[in-house]
Design a protein around this nucleic acid. Sequence first.
DNA 1: TTGTAGGCGTTATCAA
DNA 2: TTGATAACGCCTACAA
Lengths: 335, 335
Amino acid sequence: MVTIKDIARESGYSVSTVSRVLNHRNDVSPDAKKRIEEVVAEYHFVPNNNAKHLKQSNSKSIGVLVKGISNMLFASIVEEIQRMIEKTDYTVVVSYLDEDDDEVEQALLLCRERKPLGLLFLGGNPEYFKKGFAKVDLPCVLVTNLADKMDFSNLSSVATDDVAAAKCAVDALFEAGHQKIGILGGDIEKSYTSHLRFEGCLESFGEHGRPFFPELCYEKARFSYGSAYRGMERLLRKYPDLTAVFAMSDVMAIGAIRALRDMDYRIPEDISVIGFDGTDLAEYYNPKLATIKQQYQTLATRSVEILFGQIELKKDRVHEIVPFEFVSGESIQKI
Amino acid sequence: MVTIKDIARESGYSVSTVSRVLNHRNDVSPDAKKRIEEVVAEYHFVPNNNAKHLKQSNSKSIGVLVKGISNMLFASIVEEIQRMIEKTDYTVVVSYLDEDDDEVEQALLLCRERKPLGLLFLGGNPEYFKKGFAKVDLPCVLVTNLADKMDFSNLSSVATDDVAAAKCAVDALFEAGHQKIGILGGDIEKSYTSHLRFEGCLESFGEHGRPFFPELCYEKARFSYGSAYRGMERLLRKYPDLTAVFAMSDVMAIGAIRALRDMDYRIPEDISVIGFDGTDLAEYYNPKLATIKQQYQTLATRSVEILFGQIELKKDRVHEIVPFEFVSGESIQKI
DNA sequence: TTGTAGGCGTTATCAA
DNA sequence: TTGATAACGCCTACAA
């Protein structure tokens, strides 16, 4: 393996000078710079990041922790974040975690290893934050979950109002004349997001003067096509005369629709369906999916802006709500 | 930051003993192990991977390089690979690259930094391999692309026969009675996969005694809904009387279908569409998408088996073709 | 079974 | 503008 020492030897300069050239510093003579760059190119030298990060104390980088690799909304937000940060002199370090990994623990690890100047959490479990976030002592923004209930001075948040958005979805079904509404969502014990959207459902039912019996009209599923398909089957079995379904993600909605169609229901003529997230897929699906569109662009830009505000301008944390949009699609039928 | 030295001091043992405990080695007394583990837990000590990998020469890990983060087929394969390797005493290091990044360069970097015992490439550009793979000197498997044309003794490959599979797709359209067939695919100059599938189309046209005019019936698009949507519009403009479309991925097919429906064509009554990949989405879409299903499970298991064969049993490289399946779906109409 | 000491490849400090 | 040299945190002979 060719190291900085080899480059030093070959170029006739010392490792320090080579290091300076590598890090684009200006206290190097043009001659040295030129010669060293030639040798670097000739040997295809690439610095070893382990050694680099081991030594370096601060790295002008932003860490991004993404919970759930196949979450399309997060994928869109990450892309947008990358695009924004590329324009600055910061670099981005993205770390993909599993759905139920402890993101705060991973954050601590990332800090030790890359020493970023700030952190962006895409998705997060309040339990993990309460347990371990006190040890994180750099500016952070939690994206897509509001952190206003947690009192950490270095933690901002940017999110869609999940309660209001879910309420809006269910309202839309009530307003289309539906009374028997089933809900397909995540585990409200484990997923805080699901918990909030569940709250929104409660509110909507309350406001429309309808009692809400979870045992009857709520069914749990994972955020995947297959799981939602089976969840929909269970839901329909216990609530056979439902006329509308709110699924807590577009993926779930699509799984549910396939299940319903396989049981010979037409969407939306027999059963209406509304999803959540407003990913691209929703408008490419047939029928076009009614959904609640989260503004992923705004979520991305605001979170980056807020993070830089905290890092560079030493601004205070903020908890910001980004408006959502109701997309009517073609999957809701007025009755 | 708490380091191994702190643990040594607090536990009363030396750093080497602590290191031994951390690496689960058995030349440590139970007393030492117990005491040290207590202190580690108390201080929430986590080893610094930079330092670890900087020093460590071999790490019992497998590197996975994934090209294209929103490629659903790859996502499924990665999951399967993780599941398999978890059962062994190896660990997995996944590295997600952009569609057009140089995966071989990244592989070199990964090798320097993590010193894996083997590498799995999900997707790859033959150009990059020809240019730089000679410098990679550990067992590797290229997945979803065949590498039999390249003569590297440490490079195996496992893939679907893209030529035959694409031919099968187009054959299906011919056999349904279609004569005017349009094709929506990637850039055959840049994407080797697209190039091969293009070859398959040529073969099918030839076999059915139909001339193939790329300017008329081939249109280029990226592998995304939006790009395929616009590609389909262009294709239809130059080939207005086509009755069937082969899209080189399911995502493209769905983009194309939306474009066609927006122009008031019915699928499959007016225009038939067949996709490629056979991701979950294909069977959840409406209409169920006709497609060529790549066996992602087999691709995953075979590539891991072959890699371990090379690493542990010093077996020779192999180039293996995994069969594909034709899925008829509901998007092809006999005429 | 345990400890000492040297080194992994880089950056940072200081002196020249 | 340069170059020695000491870290960074960990692993691993080798010695005890």
